[in-house]
Design a protein around this nucleic acid. Structure first.
Lengths: 187, 187, 187, 187
DNA sequence: CATGAATGAGATTTCATTCAT
DNA sequence: TATGAATGAAATCTCATTCAT
């Protein structure tokens, strides 16, 4: 078990502090000074660890999408897989609301930042592929269009993160799950 | 028919220019100088029309949600009303993509701007109420939860505006419409 | 006679202040803050008149080589023309020592600044051409190589500006003039 | 034969790297980090060898004027001595152009740096004395002013290093040599 | 000797806002 | 209404230097 170096620690601290700043004040409100202050170092020292603000942001992006990278493969029937997938997301929305705030910020910033767009597009493509594949399996309503259903899932999840509270977000996603689940598999 | 004063024209010009700037560069990229340049006046003059940048932004917010205020009442069966409502939104997404870009920006900024949050919350509440009322009418699946369905509609529409192209957004909304429409009313 | 606008005045003031700064502290020591302070305005206002520091420097370069642009045509015999030319330079060295300090700085900076190099190269080429042409006229020692003589004149003048005092610079240039002047035209 | 310690080697390496940096980017572009990188050590370590940047620069100055310190005494007639002296300089200009770039930088910086000025003034005084003494010897034109001639030699050599290429520099110095050489000794 | 984290002073540049004309 | 000069706060980034290891 390699002991993390001081450097790694500090970098991680900075990334987390920047994450918190974005969650609190948005990308627009991200200030290297504030990040440094949160960690307790001089603002110029931030540049010792991240040459530019963009480098720091890139690390934050990595950090923010990490929870979605390490997803363990889903198991069970297609409907069970969808249920597990959406339930996981709902649970994350409840447990880590700030993560979804940051993701919203990232999605918006991606519009005008090529680096972020590339990273998020990759994540979305993977998400889209997985979900489309899921809906291509047998067991859904015969008139379900796999690609359209996948778009709907993605849109609903992203949009739910704008809900004024997690309960409303969860209600929206639960309703979506109910609608997509074939009648005979509903609880 | 009152002829608009030059002043009124100028204000409107500024609002539209600011709208365009936000669509192009985001809130973060909104510069009063750029707005002034787009209109062809000196940047100081903007302050004759809008005391502060926040005032200009408030006017842009009003301008952006105007298309949703003047909605004529829906008619027909509940399913027809939902169909008309969502089709209108899809058509807007196709015809005025920049409007939805700006709305996305507004939704995000609302997180940290009380004025914007108030305006958008009002719009969302009206939207939520109308949609919930719609789902309270008879004719839906017996297990449809009106409030959850309304949340889902709102989430899906908001999330669809993050789709990489209008076709995908339309596919998601069409799929949602299909899922919500009772089997016997589907085309 | 057009009355100079306030803007022109301020720009001119800034250029002269920057010139003085360079004479005093070199290009390396040129600070927009110091220039602003010398003129009595806030340092950010400098950017109202010159978008970037490079723009300000470009204006200083123009200002510095202006005395060499408006040279009236030389008259008389070739030897008299050379004498007048060098005497003019010696007089300038005595009367405006800071001008030559700045020119030295410019010559050095030209090594690494394309814009400055272009401007100075143009000046040097004109100077070289004029002087070569001068030495191509009849009346010089038969073994004078016009191009080499022109190079020597330019080198000596530039090098003389490194002399510890104007008298030494003048002595060098006078000696050069004596050496180049045909014996029969010497006083 | 004392084997140089590692420390001595490192110091020398650093001085040469700093010399190279100045030749490439000027004094203004001299960065201790870049020097350290060129040598392959951490930038903090530079301070183990040179307490401050000024100390490093002082060593570079010494290194730059070394070629002029170890000049072996000139022999032959005065005209031959001048010829050998100038030919040596011309050869150096061709073989070590970067040396003259650095010397130019030094001469300029001397204007505002007391330490450098002192070192260079000493070199110039020695140069001036030697050259004046040379012109005081019999064999020159009767109207040659030894001190003025020495100033001219120094000015021309310094100025020649601003020539756009070594050929032009050489042409200027050769022409000077020709002009100074008594007619009866010219080849 | 060497490293790397940290510092702090300072530099340019941006931008909303104010004010006199 | 409109202009443009001016302001001042703030932001990112640079770099020589110091210090603990």
């Amino acid at each position: 078990m390699p002991k993390p170096t001081a450097s790694t620690d500090r970098r991680q601290q900075l990334v987390e502090a920047a994450f918190d700043e974005i969650a609190a004040n948005g990308f627009e409100g991200l200030r290297t000074r504030a990040v440094a202050r949160a960690v307790g170092i001089d603002h110029s020292t931030v540049h010792h660890h991240f040459a530019t603000k963009a480098d720091l942001i890139a690390a934050v992006v990595d950090h923010a999408i990490a929870p979605f990278r390490t997803g363990k493969p889903l198991t069970g029937s297609p409907a069970e897989q969808l249920r597990d997938h959406l339930n996981l997301l709902v649970r994350l929305m409840r447990e880590r609301p700030r993560l979804f705030i940051v993701l919203r910020e990232l999605d918006l910033r991606a519009t005008r930042d090529d680096n972020i767009r590339a990273i998020l597009a990759e994540r979305d493509n993977r998400w889209r592929d997985t979900t489309t594949t899921l809906f291509r399996q047998p067991g859904w309503h015969s008139d379900t269009d796999p690609e359209a259903a996948a778009e709907l899932v993605i849109a609903a999840v992203k949009g739910a993160s704008f809900a004024p509270d997690p309960d409303r977000a969860a209600a929206a996603i639960d309703e979506l799950l109910r609608l997509l689940t074939p009648r005979e598999e509903r609880p």
